[in-house]
Design a protein around this nucleic acid. Structure first.
Length: 484
RNA sequence: GCCCCCGUCGUCUAGCGGCCUAGGACGUCGCCCUCUCACGGCGGUAACGCCGGUUCAAAUCCGGUCGGGGGUACCA
């Protein structure tokens, strides 16, 4: 009988949330949901210097936007709280005391400088702690204490080797002689990540730890600690580990927080859909099938198998992310696209907030023209502003040359005679006057007209746009453009 | 230095011994559609790092090598 799956999100609220963090969360989420398991959300804010409320809030906002829900933890509570490590000091002190009373750890009085000096003197190639304080006598301890030194609590790595079956990489073995004893707490008593992360996983009964590749080499330490926690009755079981590949930026470097592409919330601002971002991120290390890369999260949950995750580092490709986002956009019903576009139109000042009834109606008519041709929600604003702008504020963003002005005049004259202002009638009148009458190529004919009416070279379909704009405004803009 | 991870088109990947003269997607190039853009359609480009071994048969298994990455903290 296997125990129910329990995974965790455990971000540190330092800085703007990174797409790699989101990818890790997504895989945890998909894994848990696939297995009908639970997700615990805990905030690892032990680093007082770097943790900020802004970052904390940004992470929660991001998770909600993406729809990565959780069952226990931050904001929802649960039986293993509190879920902010900054509020769990008593828990760590207690565990540390029990560890310290056992032989799994020892007090270490060395300073970093002393360890370095010894290594230099001995010519040793080992980089970590040298085990100097492993077997201190009571007298030696007393002597150090008499000097006013306070110890860090150091974990005593066992002899032999440590092997685990990594969920994404298979069996991995470390000889513990290559894994130096490590500190669990600072000399001032503050617990370190090396302690709090495994301890919380233990107390929160996490069964599967899916995390970044950067933590792979600390796994032997955590496994050894976990064995001790199990022995001491603090942990029930040792979780399974899986190490997810890096998300890289340009070149061969990990996508760093300094890269603009790294900031997950920036994608929302750019007009990405959560469906699009998630779908793209899922592709970084996983695929649903050999001939398919657009899918819903429900489909991902259904198909996700951690063993299928590719261990190779993946480069973040903005172009492909946008293409996937565009595909997801096309999957949405029109009124949903409208709904999602609206905040961006308000933000850009294209429509008011709240939207007037007239604008809402116009938008409903205009959206069919733009929904199919935008890849990101932000693009709707530049495509639609000509329709909503006050006439006095209408501006042409492109030049119309001399020849173009003649075309515009011909268009104006032809359109003035149109009886019913409809797309078909406009189409007919313009073609008769410009293509047949002036013998122009369509491209040459409609380009200047488009600029006159919409202000841009790129716009929704011209005739439909003019119908929506209305006869008076269309003719007025054409007239205005005739004189340059 | 030592330890660990990784190695298929430019990029993300499919492939888990024969279906591979290696498939899809993004990108890119050409063409078609076309009032712009976008969509859509068609076609092209382009990869198993290298060397050995196992096998009737290897992108797939093993070893080595080269290359890339990470770790080696009283950071997380």
């Amino acid at each position: 009988m296997t125990s129910p799956v329990r995974v965790r999100f455990c971000p540190s609220p330092t800085g703007s949330p990174h797409v790699g963090l989101v990818r890790t969360a997504l895989f945890n989420w998909a894994f848990a949901r696939h297995h009908g398991g639970q997700i615990v959300f805990r905030m690892e804010d032990t680093d007082r210097e770097r943790s900020t409320q802004e970052s904390y809030d940004a992470i929660l906002e991001l998770w909600r936007w993406l729809g990565l829900d959780w069952d226990e933890g931050i904001e929802v509570g649960g039986p293993h709280g509190p879920y902010r490590q900054s509020e769990r000091g008593a828990v760590y002190r207690d565990v540390l005391a029990r560890l310290r009373a056992s032989s799994y750890t020892y007090d270490c009085f060395c300073t970093t400088e002393e360890v370095d000096a010894r290594r230099k003197a001995s010519g040793s190639k080992m980089q970590g702690y040298d085990g100097f304080c492993r077997d201190l006598t009571d007298e030696q301890r007393a002597a150090f204490e008499a000097e006013g030194r306070s110890p860090v609590v150091r974990f005593r790595m066992p002899d032999g080797s440590i092997t685990w079956h990594d969920l994404v990489r298979g069996d991995i073995t470390f000889e513990t002689e290559n894994v130096p004893d490590y500190a669990l707490s600072r000399a001032n008593g503050d617990p370190l990540y090396t302690l709090v992360n495994p301890v919380d996983d233990a107390l929160m009964q996490i069964t599967h730890v899916l995390r970044g590749e950067d933590l792979l080499s600390s796994t032997p330490r955590q496994l050894a600690l976990f064995e001790a926690l199990v022995e001491l009755g603090i942990a029930e079981q040792v979780p399974a580990y899986g190490h997810l590949p890096y998300v890289m930026g340009q070149g061969n470097k990990k996508l760093s927080k300094r890269d603009p592409e790294a900031h997950a919330l920036a994608y929302r601002e750019q007009g990405f859909l959560p469906e699009g971002l998630l779908n793209y991120l899922a592709l970084l290390g996983w695929s649903i099938a050999g001939d398919r890369d657009v899918f819903s999260m429900a489909e991902m949950v259904e198909a996700f198998d951690i063993a299928d995750v590719n261990p190779n580092p993946a480069r973040f490709d903005l172009k492909k992310a946008e293409a996937i986002n565009a595909s997801q956009m096309r999957l949405l019903p029109l009124d949903e696209v409208t709904h999602r576009v609206l905040p961006f139109l308000k933000e850009a000042g294209v429509v008011g907030d709240p939207v007037s009834d007239a604008d809402a109606q116009l938008l409903e008519l205009a959206m069919p023209l733009v929904a199919e041709r935008i890849n990101k929600l932000t693009e709707a604003a530049t495509m639609l502003d000509f329709l909503f702008v006050d006439e006095a504020d209408f501006a042409r963003h492109e030049e119309i040359d001399e020849a173009g002005r003649d075309v515009v005049k011909a268009a104006h004259d032809a359109l003035s005679a149109v009886e019913t202002w409809s797309t078909a009638a406009i189409d007919e009148a313009l073609r008769a006057a410009l293509i047949d009458g002036l013998g122009l190529k369509p491209r040459v004919a409609f380009g200047p007209v488009r600029i006159a009416v919409t202000g841009r070279k790129v716009s929704p379909p011209l005739f439909e746009s003019m119908e929506l704009l209305g006869r008076d405004r269309s003719l007025a803009r054409l007239h205005d453009a005739m004189s340059g």
